[in-house]
């Protein structure tokens, strides 16, 4: 089940950046960090720890490492420290990261 964002909807603008979170199309604001875009989109966990506990962005300033997600194939990326880009592919993480597969044109 998807949880509604814990933040108020922002006024819509003409300027936005489109990206995907776990395959879902999402619109973000230019200047958003990946974490901000994810929090604006949903109140769900951004990852589950190796013990299965749900976690989301906590400190928003690069200190706590709880907002680790996969960004364009790169796992354990600090979502609060990376800004959104057009076409970005974001995936929530379950448990520990894996070694990055070399891009081979398919999974």
């Amino acid at each position: 089940m998807s949880t509604a964002s814990r933040f108020k909807a922002r006024p819509s603008t003409n300027h936005f950046i489109s990206l995907t979170i776990d395959g879902q199309s999402v619109l973000a604001k230019p200047g958003d960090s990946v974490a901000a875009a994810m929090l604006a989109y949903s109140g769900d966990a951004m990852r589950h720890t190796v013990k299965g506990s749900p976690r989301a962005a906590y400190c928003m300033m690069g200190v706590c490492f709880d907002c680790l997600v996969e960004v364009d194939g790169y796992p354990n990326t600090q979502a609060c420290m990376v800004q959104v880009k057009e076409g970005m592919v974001i995936r929530r993480q379950q448990g520990l990261r894996k070694l990055k597969k070399e891009p081979t044109g398919g999974e």
Binding site: F7, R10, G31, A37, L39
Partner: peptide, 11 residues
């Protein structure tokens, strides 16, 4: 930070 950098206001 979310308020300042993304205009996100907690509900």
């Amino acid at each position: 930070i979310l308020m300042k950098s993304s205009g996100l206001l907690p509900r």
